[in-house]
Amino acid sequence: MFVRIVKLSFAPENINTFKANFETIKHKIRAFEGCQLLELYQDKHNSNVFFTYSYWTSETHLERYRQSELFKGVWANTKPLFNAKPEAWSVDKIASLQ
């Protein structure tokens, strides 16, 4: 499994636009081949900061998504809303307790 974490910071006036855009495309991203999980989090103390967690079958699957027309459309709509450069990490899950 390949885990991707992305930190997104938005101008306060763009938060609702981002949330509305995410609502319309989240199922398409989740349905993309190789995507096993998609989650969106909002920071409790800094409401303009969001994190996406996505689990992919492999790095190749994530890269196919990142090269897809779906991602290009998502990015075109999201990029103008940022107030800071996004940060991304690819990580290995070491443990998960439920």
Rank of each mutant, 00 (worst) to 15 (best):
68 S>C: 04
33 E>V: 09
95 A>I: 05
96 S>C: 01
93 K>N: 07
87 E>M: 10
66 R>L: 12
9 S>R: 05
26 K>F: 11
22 F>Q: 02
17 T>I: 13
13 E>S: 12
67 Q>A: 11
35 C>Y: 06
50 F>L: 02
16 N>W: 11
25 I>Y: 06
36 Q>H: 14
51 F>P: 00
79 K>G: 03
74 V>I: 09
18 F>H: 00
17 T>F: 06
20 A>R: 11
85 K>M: 12
38 L>I: 07
84 A>P: 02
7 K>Y: 06
83 N>R: 08
77 N>W: 04
6 V>R: 02
40 L>D: 01
72 K>S: 05
60 T>I: 13
68 S>H: 03
67 Q>E: 13
71 F>Q: 01
66 R>Y: 08
36 Q>T: 10
21 N>V: 11
57 T>W: 07
63 E>F: 08
42 Q>C: 03
2 F>D: 04
12 P>H: 15
61 H>K: 14
42 Q>F: 04
37 L>Q: 15
88 A>M: 13
8 L>G: 01
10 F>E: 01
2 F>H: 10
39 E>I: 08
96 S>D: 00
93 K>M: 12
10 F>H: 01
58 S>Y: 08
10 F>Q: 00
62 L>T: 01
70 L>K: 01
73 G>T: 13
89 W>L: 13
41 Y>D: 09
84 A>W: 06
73 G>V: 10
2 F>Y: 15
71 F>T: 04
44 K>I: 12
14 N>H: 10
68 S>P: 02
1 M>E: 15
4 R>D: 03
15 I>A: 03
18 F>R: 00
20 A>W: 07
89 W>D: 07
81 L>Q: 01
42 Q>A: 03
6 V>I: 09
98 Q>E: 00
85 K>F: 07
66 R>M: 10
60 T>P: 03
78 T>R: 04
11 A>F: 08
42 Q>R: 04
72 K>H: 12
44 K>F: 13
54 S>R: 01
97 L>A: 03
48 N>S: 12
45 H>G: 06
